[in-house]
Design a binder for these strands. Structure first.
Lengths: 244, 244
DNA sequence: GCGCCCTCGGTGGTCTGACCTCTGATGCTA
DNA sequence: TAGCATCAGAGGTCAGACCACCGAGGGCGC
């Protein structure tokens, strides 16, 4: 029973100081004692209370700041200090961009995930978009058209178009993930556009698909919007193999 | 022209030391100079090269470690040091759990996102699951059945069931997101099970739905699997309002 | 010659204490 | 009363020390 290969005696992980601090902060959030907008104690106080060094506290704050959970401001008074912030979009985008770059997610998986999420976003947008959201989508359409458009402008407008649809759907989690995936691909798509033989005629075709999709949203035709979204993404994927 | 309200003169963000270090490491990853498994220079070297203090380097490493991009090991020799790791699942799960807890994502959005992703996972699993994956799913089924099952056991088995389906689909990104969302809800679901009037009969019904879904997967019936998944999730959501 | 053990060096982990910059609040002064 | 100088407290940064850990390599005994 005391066989040294007994998995019950596997080495126990020694928690590091900053992990204890993270856990302490997480516990406060999970229990509801800390909500968005609430301030944390000053780093020096927190270090003294948790009996770790200030460096340990700072490392923990940095980790949670990187996840978009906290936000620090220098200075004095009510405006200064560290607060619970909950700004997930930028953090989620960076997260996905890094892991896509590390090829940790195969490229086909990313495209399929994008199709899944953007189909859902498109259907939600067709059902829920109000006039303002539709106008915002239409504005991005104009930016990507015209004869003199550069790849940079087109790519920015394309990103903005898909992001606007995701936002119009009204589901914050789906739109955050949609935006994060689209933006994680942005620089690669731009590069692929530059490398494309005849990118300006490709831009015309992609823009036409955008217009078609937008019209489906205006008609409130969720099924068509889903199908057009999938066709559009798969078409672009096929035309820009250099993205991989 | 030098109007002080001119937005061109908005304050420029002064980058902090650890952000420069993060950027430097990210650049290496984006350019392909650093790939999974590669070691970073020792903290002291990196600090000297980037002309920041070791504390700044450590904060940057901690942030990327928290995102699952790096991994540090103490000691000496080839095994020790900081490496590019790419372990996104645990980091993504923590990320979502925190942001769901902060109510940054409305609960209905989380349920809808879960439906979207798990429908996709179920369809993929129906098409792609091999014998081993199906056997793994079936194993989790057995754990959640029986008369003497506790809420904890049922919840663990339920999580494992959904996670196994997501894994069986073969799309790593979709399955990571599916798993992260399901696990971010796990503790709340467990609490709701405890609070339910007649949880054991509810468990029987949920288990029956699991069996039905599993049979659809075995039949390779993707459409049925999608529909059963959505029905199952929405049923559970309705029966466990305390989750909110 | 072989194998064990032990020291050594380099790694991340932690802490201390100092100093900086920033900025709201305070209170003095004109 | 308006304006300005000072202050205090917050995060930002740094230098330096010491610790725990663990592979590598050398030395010793067999």
């Amino acid at each position: 029973m005391t066989d040294e290969r007994n998995p019950a005696w596997a080495p126990v992980a020694r928690p590091r100081a900053h992990e204890l601090v993270i856990q302490a902060i997480e516990d406060q959030i999970m229990s509801g004692a800390l909500a968005v907008g609430d301030p944390l104690p000053p780093e020096r106080d927190l270090a003294a209370r948790l009996e770790v060094s200030r460096a340990g506290v700072r490392e923990a704050v940095r980790v949670l700041e990187g996840q978009g959970v906290l936000r620090s401001r220098v200075g004095s008074g009510a405006e200064a200090g560290t607060f619970v912030a909950a700004l997930p979009d930028a953090a989620l985008t960076r997260f996905l961009r890094l892991h896509v770059a590390l090829a940790n997610f195969p490229f086909a998986d990313v495209v399929d995930a994008r199709v899944t999420l953007e189909r859902s976003s498109a259907a939600l947008a067709a059902r829920n978009a109000d006039a303002g959201a539709l106008a915002a989508i239409e504005q991005t359409l104009a930016r990507g058209a015209g004869p003199g458009v550069t790849p940079e402008e087109f790519n920015d407008a394309d990103t903005a178009f898909h992001v606007a649809i995701a936002a119009a759907g009204g589901n914050r989690l789906v739109s955050s993930m949609t935006i994060a995936i689209r933006e994680s691909l942005s620089t690669r798509i731009l590069q692929a556009l530059h490398d494309h033989d005849d990118w300006s005629s490709l831009a015309v075709r992609l823009h036409a698909q955008h217009v078609e999709l937008f019209e489906a949203l205006v008609r409130r035709d969720a099924d068509a919007a889903e199908q057009l979204t999938e066709q559009h993404i798969r078409f672009a994927d096929q035309e820009l193999p250099a993205v991989r």
